[in-house]
Design a protein around this nucleic acid. Structure first.
Length: 703
DNA sequence: GCCAACGTTGGC
DNA sequence: GCCAACGTTGGC
């Protein structure tokens, strides 16, 4: 009899949950029974209806969701009456009941929705406090369950995945200070530490050896340097630095970390192999001095495991400790939520809070509501129902506001007109946002730029690239607040007389980058007399949203003469008077280096830059990677592009090419990692438009 | 992707 | 505790 009961209770766990409802109930009950209910020793588990069939407030308060529910239970107890929670958005329709099925985590009897809720540290703490103080039957937070109420950080995703028995991932050297709880099914599954993720990802991702291009770089120096012309070295470094990087695609933090021990005497082999994970080659298992957990030391002397290194933990997406000390290479994919200064949570929260304001435009400076717009009318003080809860439309920042970006997108026909203005000793470019349609937003001209904001940008964005700030190359980081002086919808089209002075740097990051939410920033310094430029309004021949955000700033600090080159300047001037192939723009960067950029994101050359240095030697880069000198395009054109015709010829040639898409690595190892396309070490980068990948990427040699 | 709705949070 | 308004969610 007992056996039969046991069998009956265990059967549902092996039954397909979609076929019957009982297993879920069983699972819910199982969760409840497994939870430590200190305050309810005599708790009797009652058969409950399925989670998604309950009324909403009941749904939220059934005690499964520990932290949030405790808050609500408290509220209900204080009021004496359960609060009815109103739904967001439009009323749900019937099919949501079915969606409820999909969102249910059958293994844990939890709604997936809950895992998506975001709460910051403060609210979590508050919730914990209220839960503890109210003496409710809030289960003691189980370390193995906390990720379910935390934001879905990569760690939490990793954890939830690795905790799933279907994908046992045995990590002998993994870091885990989590006691083996009843939620861990045998064989013991432990949380995979970021370190382990990194190394495992590295093993599979870096399948090609890291090719050092020192030789290629030397070629450039020897071929382009002339005796006695030390000035040529500076711009050359623009290429040398990136060229020191592997030619494989944009590096991620994973690969960065994998590169860390390169200089470590403890890992002499890694430089050469480049494909072996640290763990594999040198499983330096140590015991963490703080939590006692075993961990895989990255280098000799590591005493704390990954989880006990708070700074690392918060910034693990970026670098490891060693990487912070080292000079960071240019090809870093920054996470959107990157904290630039490694600041604490408060700082970040503050920045996050204020990122919809530039604090400089007239909208931001406006203190009073208009009282007439829909958002004002929604406010209780104007008799509204407070449903929208948005700032007065006239006070929405012209640059940072989501509202503006949306409306601008919706209209899609905004354009910037530039003109020069002189104020005191500073020269400004005045940009006026023109709208085809009337707007209730006051479109005052915005004077852009000041030295202070330049410095802020410099401070904020330098040190993040091998193209360092002293070379006059600055760029914004993705997801960061864009200062007011950055403009959207850049009008940099060579068909138009762009009123620019000397561009001191640019880093167009390419189509794929912007599509992933990254910003493409170009910063321009106006360094030439205003008479040098026309003041005709800029008009776009094609109303194509060019993803270039241009930063224009003060004239202060003119370039020194050594940064000018007569020959390049003449070529620059000539190119400015020439109709180049569509959307190619010629800019003069500090160095001096003449750069030709493809501004159209629709072009296959959106990520390509042609750079002409002193002596007219030219080099092409694709996605910030130098095109190898063995590429056919170099043989099809003169080594030096001395004339406009030469330049145009190269550009036309480039227009017939496309960027190699690489190949998809099938053996990524980690099932939760996105399948990324990678390129072979000697990828051609630029190939015929008709092809998808170059020969090297078609037949990659697994390293 | 847009947008209405609203939970949440920082400032006071 | 109140207010302003930011960020997120979910329906369409």
């Amino acid at each position: 009899m007992t056996d039969e009961l046991n069998r009956a209770s265990s059967e549902p766990e092996t039954t397909n949950p979609e076929e019957t409802m009982h297993p879920i109930e069983a699972d819910i009950n199982a969760v409840e029974e497994n939870t430590v209910w200190d305050d309810m020793p005599g708790k009797v588990t009652v058969e409950l209806p399925p989670d998604w069939l309950k009324p909403m407030e009941e749904d939220e308060d059934d005690g499964v969701d520990g932290l949030r529910s405790s808050e609500r239970i408290t509220r209900r107890n204080n009021d004496g009456v359960p609060k009815v929670k109103r739904r967001r958005g439009r009323p749900p329709i019937a099919r949501n009941v079915r969606q409820g099925l999909n969102r249910l985590d059958f293994k844990k009897g939890l709604h997936m929705d809950r895992t998506r809720r975001t709460k910051n540290a403060r609210s979590l703490l508050d919730s914990r406090r209220s839960g503890l103080s109210s003496g409710n039957a809030t289960p003691v937070p189980d370390p193995s369950r906390t990720p379910e109420v935390l934001p879905r950080t990569p760690q939490s995703i990793i954890h939830s995945l690795t905790s799933t028995p279907q994908r046992p991932r045995l990590t002998p050297s993994s870091i885990s200070n989590t006691p083996n709880t009843e939620f861990n099914s045998p064989p013991r599954l432990t949380r995979i530490s970021p370190l382990n993720i990194d190394t495992s990802g590295t093993r599979n991702f870096i399948h090609t050896p890291s090719v050092k291009l020192g030789n290629v770089s030397q070629q450039i120096i020897s071929s382009s340097s002339e005796p006695g012309k030390a000035g040529t070295e500076l711009p050359l470094r623009l290429w040398l630095y990136p060229s020191m990087e592997p030619i494989s695609p944009t590096k991620t933090q994973d690969t960065l970390i994998s590169d860390l021990p390169v200089n470590s005497p403890d890992f002499p082999e890694i430089t050469l192999k480049g494909t072996m994970s640290l763990k594999e080659s040198h499983p330096m298992l140590s015991k963490c001095e703080n939590c006692g957990s075993p961990f895989s030391a990255q280098k000799a002397g590591d005493t704390l495991c990954y989880t006990c290194r708070p700074k690392l933990q918060s910034n693990f997406k970026m670098f490891s400790c060693a990487a912070e000390k080292k000079h960071s290479p240019p090809n870093i994919v920054f996470r959107k939520d990157f904290v630039p200064d490694g600041g604490d949570d408060d700082d970040w929260a503050q920045k996050k809070r204020n990122r919809r304001m530039c604090r400089q435009c007239d909208a931001c400076l406006r203190e009073e509501d208009c009282g007439k717009c829909d958002f004002c009318m929604d406010k209780p003080k104007y008799g509204g129902s407070n449903k929208k809860r948005q700032k007065c439309r006239l006070r929405q920042c012209k640059f940072q506001s989501k509202l503006h970006s949306q409306t601008a997108k919706a209209r899609g026909r905004r354009k910037w007109n530039y003109s020069f203005k002189e104020e005191d000793d500073d020269m400004f470019i005045e940009a006026v946002l023109e709208d085809d349609e009337p707007s209730n937003i006051e479109e005052d001209p915005v004077v852009l730029g000041n030295e202070g904001s330049v410095m802020a940008s410099n401070e904020m964005y330098s040190n993040t690239s091998g193209l360092s700030a002293h070379q006059g190359l600055y760029y914004n980081m993705p997801g960061m607040p864009v200062p007011s002086h950055m403009l959207g919808s850049g009008p940099l089209c060579n068909n138009n007389p762009v009123p620019l002075g000397e561009v001191i740097g640019s880093l167009p990051m390419g189509d794929d980058v912007t599509q992933n939410g990254f910003l493409q920033i170009e910063m321009v310094r106006v360094g030439s007399p205003p008479s040098h430029f026309t003041e005709e309004p800029v008009s776009e021949p094609q109303l194509e949203p060019t993803p270039v955000i241009t930063q224009i700033f003060s004239l202060a600090g003119a370039e020194s003469d050594c940064d000018r080159d007569q020959g390049l300047m003449e070529l620059f001037t000539s190119l400015g008077q020439t109709v180049l192939p569509p959307h190619w723009v010629c800019v003069m960067a500090k160095g001096p280096v003449l750069q030709l950029l493809q501004c159209s994101k629709l072009s296959t050359m959106a990520d390509t830059i042609v750079q002409i240095e002193k002596g007219f030697f030219f080099q092409v880069s694709v996605q910030n990677q130098p095109l190898l000198l063995m590429h056919a395009i170099y043989s099809r054109h003169p080594t030096c592009l001395e004339t406009v015709d030469d330049v145009v010829s190269v550009l036309l040639d480039l227009e017939g090419l496309g960027v190699c898409q690489g190949y998809q690595s099938l053996d990524m190892g980690s099932p939760w990692e996105p399948r990324m396309c990678v390129r072979a070490a000697l990828c051609d980068l630029l190939i015929s438009k008709d092809e998808e990948h170059c020969m090297k990427c078609t037949q990659p040699v697994e390293g």
